[in-house]
Amino acid sequence: MGWKEKILRRSLWVYHLGTGACNNCDIEILDVLTPRHDAERFGIKLVGSVRHADVLLVTGVITRKCLPRVLRVYEQMPEPRVVVAIGACPMEGCVFKGSYNQAGPLDKIVPVSLYIPGCPPKPEAIIAGVAKLMETLK
């Protein structure tokens, strides 16, 4: 294991990317950071720039206007990088499946490490998912 992977498993810094979501998964992500759930206990921190991030949280069906930008954000991320798909939308489209403006699913565009299903997933599910992710990084 290289030193980069060793660093990665301690404290995950996440960057949140909404790509045509209904806002709900985005709110639940913020909810995870607020006092009741408080993900900062595990060292998880929301950062303002993708260049500081270890994990990319993607929500929403990938709309056609967002598609090139998703890839650009992904390429700006430093390695080692992890992509997490939150909610049903980036996985298969949820109720928006079949829409003319949907260019997903996410795993056709970038490699995805973790899927957290739900519409929206509960904060507990998001924390459980990220805890599993941290296990796999060890």
Partner: peptide, 14 residues
């Protein structure tokens, strides 16, 4: 605008 457009009015017709 337009990053979040999901075509809901069109989907509703189906």
């Amino acid at each position: 605008l337009g990053y979040n457009h999901r075509g809901i009015e069109k989907l509703a017709e189906a």
